[in-house]
Protein backbone atom coordinates (compact mmCIF):
# COMPACT_ATOMS: atom_id res chain seq x y z
CA UNK A 1 0.00 0.00 0.00
CA UNK A 2 1.51 3.28 -1.13
CA UNK A 3 0.36 6.69 0.01
CA UNK A 4 -2.84 6.42 1.97
CA UNK A 5 -5.33 4.38 0.01
CA UNK A 6 -8.78 4.22 1.56
CA UNK A 7 -9.30 1.41 4.05
CA UNK A 8 -12.56 0.59 2.31
CA UNK A 9 -13.54 1.61 -1.17
CA UNK A 10 -16.70 0.39 -2.91
CA UNK A 11 -17.81 1.28 -6.41
CA UNK A 12 -21.24 0.36 -7.69
CA UNK A 13 -21.46 -2.48 -5.18
CA UNK A 14 -24.70 -4.35 -5.88
CA UNK A 15 -26.30 -7.45 -4.48
CA UNK A 16 -29.41 -9.04 -5.89
CA UNK A 17 -31.24 -12.00 -4.41
CA UNK A 18 -33.39 -13.14 -7.29
CA UNK A 19 -35.50 -10.14 -8.27
CA UNK A 20 -34.89 -8.38 -4.96
CA UNK A 21 -32.14 -5.77 -4.96
CA UNK A 22 -30.72 -5.73 -1.45
CA UNK A 23 -27.88 -3.30 -2.19
CA UNK A 24 -28.04 -1.06 -5.22
CA UNK A 25 -24.90 0.46 -6.77
CA UNK A 26 -23.35 1.55 -3.50
CA UNK A 27 -20.28 3.79 -3.49
CA UNK A 28 -18.37 4.14 -0.25
CA UNK A 29 -14.97 5.46 0.79
CA UNK A 30 -13.65 5.05 4.29
CA UNK A 31 -10.29 6.52 5.26
CA UNK A 32 -7.83 4.76 7.52
CA UNK A 33 -8.67 5.19 11.19
CA UNK A 34 -12.23 6.39 10.63
CA UNK A 35 -15.22 5.17 12.59
CA UNK A 36 -18.11 5.08 10.15
CA UNK A 37 -21.60 4.35 11.30
CA UNK A 38 -23.89 2.46 9.00
CA UNK A 39 -27.42 3.57 9.78
CA UNK A 40 -30.68 2.37 8.41
CA UNK A 41 -33.78 0.38 9.20
CA UNK A 42 -33.81 -3.41 9.24
CA UNK A 43 -33.61 -4.78 5.73
CA UNK A 44 -32.01 -1.64 4.33
CA UNK A 45 -28.96 -3.57 3.15
CA UNK A 46 -26.50 -2.87 5.97
CA UNK A 47 -25.69 -6.50 6.75
CA UNK A 48 -25.57 -7.44 3.08
CA UNK A 49 -23.07 -4.67 2.37
CA UNK A 50 -20.88 -5.67 5.30
CA UNK A 51 -21.02 -9.33 4.30
CA UNK A 52 -19.93 -8.46 0.78
CA UNK A 53 -17.03 -6.41 2.11
CA UNK A 54 -15.99 -9.39 4.29
CA UNK A 55 -16.13 -11.74 1.31
CA UNK A 56 -19.07 -13.70 2.73
CA UNK A 57 -21.39 -12.76 -0.11
CA UNK A 58 -20.35 -12.37 -3.71
CA UNK A 59 -21.39 -9.02 -5.21
CA UNK A 60 -23.78 -9.25 -8.15
CA UNK A 61 -22.07 -6.23 -9.65
CA UNK A 62 -19.52 -3.59 -8.76
CA UNK A 63 -16.16 -3.80 -7.04
CA UNK A 64 -14.68 -3.07 -3.66
CA UNK A 65 -11.31 -3.12 -1.97
CA UNK A 66 -10.69 -3.60 1.72
CA UNK A 67 -7.28 -2.71 3.16
CA UNK A 68 -6.22 -2.37 -0.47
CA UNK A 69 -7.26 -5.91 -1.53
CA UNK A 70 -9.98 -6.77 -3.99
CA UNK A 71 -12.85 -8.55 -2.28
CA UNK A 72 -13.63 -10.74 -5.26
CA UNK A 73 -10.15 -11.55 -6.51
CA UNK A 74 -8.30 -11.83 -3.18
CA UNK A 75 -10.93 -12.80 -0.62
CA UNK A 76 -8.51 -14.78 1.56
CA UNK A 77 -6.10 -11.86 1.79
CA UNK A 78 -9.02 -9.62 2.68
CA UNK A 79 -10.11 -12.04 5.41
CA UNK A 80 -6.63 -12.03 6.93
CA UNK A 81 -6.82 -8.24 7.23
CA UNK A 82 -10.25 -7.84 8.72
CA UNK A 83 -12.07 -8.59 11.91
CA UNK A 84 -15.77 -9.35 11.68
CA UNK A 85 -18.53 -9.50 14.21
CA UNK A 86 -21.74 -10.87 12.80
CA UNK A 87 -25.14 -9.61 13.81
CA UNK A 88 -26.02 -12.90 15.46
CA UNK A 89 -23.66 -14.00 18.22
CA UNK A 90 -21.48 -16.64 16.61
CA UNK A 91 -18.82 -17.83 19.00
CA UNK A 92 -18.93 -21.36 20.38
CA UNK A 93 -21.21 -21.57 23.41
CA UNK A 94 -19.85 -24.99 24.34
CA UNK A 95 -16.26 -23.74 24.52
CA UNK A 96 -14.83 -21.61 27.30
CA UNK A 97 -13.72 -18.01 26.92
CA UNK A 98 -10.07 -19.05 26.64
CA UNK A 99 -10.85 -21.91 24.23
CA UNK A 100 -12.72 -19.59 21.88
CA UNK A 101 -9.86 -17.10 21.91
CA UNK A 102 -7.25 -19.80 21.35
CA UNK A 103 -9.30 -21.22 18.48
CA UNK A 104 -9.54 -17.93 16.62
CA UNK A 105 -5.92 -17.17 17.46
CA UNK A 106 -5.05 -20.44 15.71
CA UNK A 107 -7.23 -19.69 12.69
CA UNK A 108 -5.66 -16.25 12.29
CA UNK A 109 -2.21 -17.74 12.95
CA UNK A 110 -1.39 -15.20 15.63
CA UNK A 111 2.29 -15.91 16.40
CA UNK A 112 2.47 -18.25 19.37
CA UNK A 113 4.79 -15.92 21.24
CA UNK A 114 2.22 -13.16 20.93
CA UNK A 115 -0.92 -15.19 21.48
CA UNK A 116 -0.77 -15.27 25.25
CA UNK A 117 -0.46 -11.52 25.47
CA UNK A 118 -3.20 -10.97 22.88
CA UNK A 119 -5.53 -13.33 24.72
CA UNK A 120 -4.86 -11.56 27.99
CA UNK A 121 -5.60 -8.24 26.27
CA UNK A 122 -8.89 -9.55 24.88
CA UNK A 123 -9.93 -10.98 28.24
CA UNK A 124 -9.16 -7.71 30.00
CA UNK A 125 -10.90 -5.67 27.34
CA UNK A 126 -14.02 -7.82 27.58
CA UNK A 127 -13.94 -7.50 31.39
CA UNK A 128 -13.75 -11.28 31.71
CA UNK A 129 -10.67 -11.53 33.91
CA UNK A 130 -11.10 -14.54 36.17
CA UNK A 131 -13.77 -16.08 33.94
CA UNK A 132 -11.46 -17.52 31.30
CA UNK A 133 -12.68 -21.04 32.02
CA UNK A 134 -16.38 -20.24 31.94
CA UNK A 135 -18.39 -21.74 29.10
CA UNK A 136 -19.36 -18.91 26.79
CA UNK A 137 -23.05 -19.86 26.74
CA UNK A 138 -23.21 -18.98 30.44
CA UNK A 139 -22.16 -15.35 29.82
CA UNK A 140 -24.58 -12.43 29.70
CA UNK A 141 -25.13 -10.52 26.45
CA UNK A 142 -22.72 -7.64 27.03
CA UNK A 143 -19.82 -9.94 27.90
CA UNK A 144 -20.54 -12.14 24.90
CA UNK A 145 -20.42 -9.12 22.59
CA UNK A 146 -17.15 -7.86 24.02
CA UNK A 147 -15.65 -11.34 23.80
CA UNK A 148 -16.75 -11.53 20.17
CA UNK A 149 -14.97 -8.23 19.59
CA UNK A 150 -11.93 -9.64 21.39
CA UNK A 151 -11.90 -12.66 19.06
CA UNK A 152 -12.23 -10.39 16.05
CA UNK A 153 -9.21 -8.26 16.94
CA UNK A 154 -6.78 -10.97 18.15
CA UNK A 155 -4.77 -10.70 14.95
CA UNK A 156 -4.70 -6.89 15.00
CA UNK A 157 -6.71 -6.40 11.81
CA UNK A 158 -6.44 -2.94 10.26
CA UNK A 159 -10.15 -2.97 9.35
CA UNK A 160 -13.06 -4.02 11.54
CA UNK A 161 -16.61 -4.73 10.42
CA UNK A 162 -19.12 -4.79 13.26
CA UNK A 163 -22.68 -5.70 12.29
CA UNK A 164 -25.10 -4.37 14.91
CA UNK A 165 -22.72 -5.29 17.71
CA UNK A 166 -24.86 -3.69 20.40
CA UNK A 167 -28.29 -4.96 19.46
CA UNK A 168 -29.98 -6.53 22.44
CA UNK A 169 -27.36 -5.27 24.86
CA UNK A 170 -28.26 -3.14 27.83
CA UNK A 171 -27.39 0.63 27.66
CA UNK A 172 -24.50 0.51 30.14
CA UNK A 173 -22.85 -2.32 28.18
CA UNK A 174 -23.49 -0.43 24.95
CA UNK A 175 -21.61 2.60 26.27
CA UNK A 176 -18.68 0.43 27.30
CA UNK A 177 -18.67 -1.13 23.87
CA UNK A 178 -18.43 2.25 22.18
CA UNK A 179 -15.53 3.19 24.44
CA UNK A 180 -13.74 0.09 23.13
CA UNK A 181 -14.49 1.06 19.55
CA UNK A 182 -12.98 4.49 20.09
CA UNK A 183 -9.87 3.16 21.77
CA UNK A 184 -9.35 0.84 18.79
CA UNK A 185 -9.84 3.74 16.40
CA UNK A 186 -7.28 5.72 18.38
CA UNK A 187 -4.81 2.93 17.55
CA UNK A 188 -5.50 3.47 13.84
CA UNK A 189 -8.06 0.72 13.25
CA UNK A 190 -10.69 1.54 10.65
CA UNK A 191 -14.16 0.58 11.77
CA UNK A 192 -17.42 0.23 9.91
CA UNK A 193 -20.16 -0.35 12.44
CA UNK A 194 -23.83 -0.77 11.68
CA UNK A 195 -26.55 0.07 14.15
CA UNK A 196 -30.16 1.02 14.25
CA UNK A 197 -29.72 3.05 17.44
CA UNK A 198 -29.71 6.67 16.29
CA UNK A 199 -28.00 7.86 19.47
CA UNK A 200 -25.02 5.61 18.67
CA UNK A 201 -24.61 7.29 15.32
CA UNK A 202 -23.53 10.45 17.12
CA UNK A 203 -20.40 8.59 18.29
CA UNK A 204 -19.19 8.09 14.72
CA UNK A 205 -16.80 10.25 12.72
CA UNK A 206 -19.05 9.86 9.75
CA UNK A 207 -22.43 8.35 9.11
CA UNK A 208 -23.63 6.51 6.05
CA UNK A 209 -27.41 6.49 5.81
CA UNK A 210 -28.80 3.57 3.90
CA UNK A 211 -32.40 2.83 2.98
CA UNK A 212 -33.83 0.22 0.59
CA UNK A 213 -30.36 -0.65 -0.64
CA UNK A 214 -29.39 2.90 -1.51
CA UNK A 215 -26.78 5.01 0.20
CA UNK A 216 -28.79 8.20 0.67
CA UNK A 217 -26.31 10.39 2.52
CA UNK A 218 -22.87 10.25 4.04
CA UNK A 219 -21.13 12.79 6.23
CA UNK A 220 -20.31 13.74 9.79
CA UNK A 221 -23.31 14.02 12.12
CA UNK A 222 -22.99 17.82 12.05
CA UNK A 223 -22.76 17.94 8.28
CA UNK A 224 -25.81 15.79 7.85
CA UNK A 225 -27.86 17.95 10.17
CA UNK A 226 -26.83 21.21 8.53
CA UNK A 227 -26.57 20.22 4.92
CA UNK A 228 -28.94 17.39 4.29
CA UNK A 229 -31.98 18.61 6.09
CA UNK A 230 -32.40 21.48 3.66
CA UNK A 231 -34.41 23.88 5.78
CA UNK A 232 -35.21 24.98 9.33
CA UNK A 233 -36.71 22.59 11.81
CA UNK A 234 -39.33 23.68 14.32
CA UNK A 235 -41.10 21.80 17.03
CA UNK A 236 -44.58 22.29 18.39
CA UNK A 237 -47.00 20.51 20.66
CA UNK A 238 -50.66 20.01 19.98
CA UNK A 239 -53.43 18.21 21.86
CA UNK A 240 -54.66 16.97 18.46
CA UNK A 241 -51.42 15.76 16.88
CA UNK A 242 -53.15 13.66 14.21
CA UNK A 243 -55.35 16.49 12.94
CA UNK A 244 -52.46 18.93 13.20
CA UNK A 245 -50.23 16.62 11.17
CA UNK A 246 -52.88 16.29 8.45
CA UNK A 247 -53.33 20.06 8.28
CA UNK A 248 -49.62 20.76 8.25
CA UNK A 249 -49.05 18.51 5.26
CA UNK A 250 -50.91 21.02 3.09
CA UNK A 251 -49.62 24.22 4.74
CA UNK A 252 -47.59 26.76 2.72
CA UNK A 253 -43.83 26.50 3.29
CA UNK A 254 -44.03 23.11 5.00
CA UNK A 255 -41.65 20.64 3.42
CA UNK A 256 -42.24 17.81 5.84
CA UNK A 257 -44.06 17.17 9.08
CA UNK A 258 -43.76 14.17 11.35
CA UNK A 259 -44.79 13.07 14.81
CA UNK A 260 -41.93 12.54 17.24
CA UNK A 261 -43.23 11.13 20.46
CA UNK A 262 -45.77 13.65 21.76
CA UNK A 263 -44.46 16.44 19.55
CA UNK A 264 -44.60 17.46 15.94
CA UNK A 265 -41.43 18.23 14.00
CA UNK A 266 -42.00 20.47 11.02
CA UNK A 267 -39.43 21.18 8.37
CA UNK A 268 -39.89 24.60 6.82
CA UNK A 269 -38.65 25.65 3.40
CA UNK A 270 -35.90 28.28 3.65
CA UNK A 271 -37.36 31.71 4.24
CA UNK A 272 -40.65 30.53 5.70
CA UNK A 273 -41.85 32.45 8.72
CA UNK A 274 -42.50 30.27 11.75
CA UNK A 275 -45.07 32.74 13.07
CA UNK A 276 -47.10 32.25 9.90
CA UNK A 277 -47.29 28.56 10.73
CA UNK A 278 -48.86 29.33 14.13
CA UNK A 279 -51.47 31.53 12.47
CA UNK A 280 -52.21 28.80 9.92
CA UNK A 281 -52.96 26.29 12.66
CA UNK A 282 -55.18 28.66 14.56
CA UNK A 283 -57.04 29.44 11.30
CA UNK A 284 -57.73 25.71 11.02
CA UNK A 285 -59.16 25.63 14.54
CA UNK A 286 -56.25 23.78 15.98
CA UNK A 287 -54.46 24.60 19.17
CA UNK A 288 -50.73 24.29 19.34
CA UNK A 289 -47.78 25.70 21.23
CA UNK A 290 -45.85 28.35 19.29
CA UNK A 291 -43.33 26.72 16.94
CA UNK A 292 -39.80 26.92 18.32
CA UNK A 293 -36.66 26.28 16.30
CA UNK A 294 -34.75 23.17 17.33
CA UNK A 295 -31.44 21.55 16.48
CA UNK A 296 -32.31 18.58 14.35
CA UNK A 297 -31.42 15.10 15.50
CA UNK A 298 -30.09 12.49 13.13
CA UNK A 299 -33.47 10.89 13.26
CA UNK A 300 -34.98 14.06 11.78
CA UNK A 301 -32.41 13.94 9.04
CA UNK A 302 -33.09 10.32 8.40
CA UNK A 303 -36.85 10.71 8.27
CA UNK A 304 -36.42 13.68 5.96
CA UNK A 305 -34.05 11.88 3.63
CA UNK A 306 -36.08 8.75 3.17
CA UNK A 307 -39.39 10.62 2.72
CA UNK A 308 -40.95 10.97 -0.67
CA UNK A 309 -40.68 14.69 -1.21
CA UNK A 310 -37.45 15.92 -2.74
CA UNK A 311 -35.59 18.44 -0.62
CA UNK A 312 -35.34 22.00 -1.93
CA UNK A 313 -31.85 22.76 -3.16
CA UNK A 314 -29.81 24.04 -0.26
CA UNK A 315 -26.24 25.24 -0.12
Amino acid sequence: MNGAPPAVQARGLTKRFGAFVAVDALDLDIAKGEVVGFIGPNGAGKSTTIRMLCGLLRPSAGTATVAGYDIVREPETVRAHIGYMSQKFSLYGDLTVAENLRFFGGLYRVPRAELKERMAFAVTMAGLTGREDALVRTLAGGWKQRLALGCAILHRPPVLFLDEPTSGVEPEARRRFWDLIHSLAADGVTILVSTHYMDEAEYCNRIALIAAGHLIAIGSPGELKRRDLGGALVELESPQPGAALAALHGAPGVVEAAIFGDRLHVLLAPGTDAAALARFLVAHGLTATPPKPIIPSLEDVFVRLVSRKPAPEAA
Partner: peptide, 14 residues
Protein backbone atom coordinates in the same frame (compact mmCIF):
# COMPACT_ATOMS: atom_id res chain seq x y z
CA UNK B 1 -27.50 -24.21 12.57
CA UNK B 2 -25.84 -22.40 15.46
CA UNK B 3 -24.64 -19.52 13.31
CA UNK B 4 -20.98 -20.15 14.08
CA UNK B 5 -20.28 -20.81 10.42
CA UNK B 6 -20.60 -17.12 9.59
CA UNK B 7 -17.77 -16.26 11.95
CA UNK B 8 -15.73 -19.22 10.81
CA UNK B 9 -15.83 -18.36 7.12
CA UNK B 10 -14.92 -14.74 7.84
CA UNK B 11 -11.47 -16.03 8.85
CA UNK B 12 -8.77 -17.09 6.38
CA UNK B 13 -9.44 -20.80 7.04
CA UNK B 14 -9.66 -22.84 3.82
Amino acid sequence: ERGTMEQLISTPVT
